[in-house]
Amino acid sequence: MSKSNTILYLDGVSVSFDGFRAINNLSLVLDKGEMRAIIGPNGAGKTTMMDIVTGKTRPDEGEVFFDGQVDLTRHDEAEIAMMGIGRKFQKPTVFESHSVEDNLMLALKGPRSIFPALFHRRSAAEARQIDDILGVIRLGDKRHDLAANLSHGQKQWLEIGMLLAQDPKLLLVDEPVAGMTDAETEETARLLKDIARDHSVIVVEHDMHFVRELGVKVTCLHEGSVLSEGSLDFVSADERVVEVYLGR
């Protein structure tokens, strides 16, 4: 496989915790500008894969490359984030004691050292960027509200907004519609499709309706490796996929 023109390239990646192989010889390639949905039963290694890509977990073996040439196994979370990989957690994780606006302000791309932050003054350009993102995530009227007072779905959107503020090349989105109403789910699908126009995106999700709505290539993980890959119809017709989902 060639690494050029890929945004993310995983080859033969394995990691085990106390003898348990969470990821087992996983290979996955994401092209630039592609959106991919990853499905799989609980314990399939979806979140561990994200941990590896974002530098939280080091793989025992295998190659992980970003943008064709950057070896991600040599960098830590902050460095990887600065290179342009944004991550949304499964449980919405925002800064609850800050306003929506301040959440975005802390996420905005820019210098990440202490002293500039200490003497930071908000510029007009930053204010405009924040306004833009608030428009995209539809939280414009909540900008002064504390993040703690948002609904579950709004927190998910705020977190996606924080990813956008980072201006990443690749977004890893873990279960964006968990706990959302149908209407919110639909909105989120639209939002992610918008984002996918100029970003590469990986979405991990259980909700098949949502995955169908995204209408992208699907990878099914099982026991830490790829079980099946292709369109949703193809994957859901795969007997092995049916088997792991419905049990034997």
Binding site: K56, F89, V94, F95, H98, L106, H120, M162, Q166
Partner: peptide, 20 residues
């Protein structure tokens, strides 16, 4: 802004790391 970051680290340290 640093102060806000300080409280952000208090409330959700891993989030700040993944923001860089």
């Amino acid at each position: 802004k640093y102060g806000k970051l300080l409280m952000a680290v208090r409330d959700a340290e891993s989030r700040t790391r993944f923001l860089g």
